[in-house]
Amino acid sequence: MSLYERLGGEPAFQAAVDGFYRLMLTDARVSHFFDSVDMDGQIAKQKAFLTYVTGGPAEYTGKDMRSAHEHLLSKGLADEHVDVVIEHLGATLVGLGAKPDDVAEVASLANSVRNDILGR
């Protein structure tokens, strides 16, 4: 059983993605990256991302990650911002009932696309 299923599947993630996005919007370290984005589109993408990193039914490729973040590189997107995302990702999963081992596993999966996000 995937972590996605153990944490409650789609209904649980629908609610959790709102919480995840609130954490990002209220964190001054990263909130400026979201100033002019379409909130609905952003939430749909983040839900797909959360689903993917917990082993749920979503596909995400390095190419998607690259093209989605390309325009943010000129705004200074760097490792420290990816760290913030992984921090909030962990908090969101803990809120859903994930154990520390699960969080570590998800963080390592998220880290595997770090170079794609940062265009390296």
Binding site: K45, A48, T51, P57
Partner: peptide, 10 residues
């Protein structure tokens, strides 16, 4: 098309 899993709504 996007996630092909009913998540991204694309």
């Amino acid at each position: 098309a996007g996630c092909r899993a009913g998540t991204c709504c694309k």
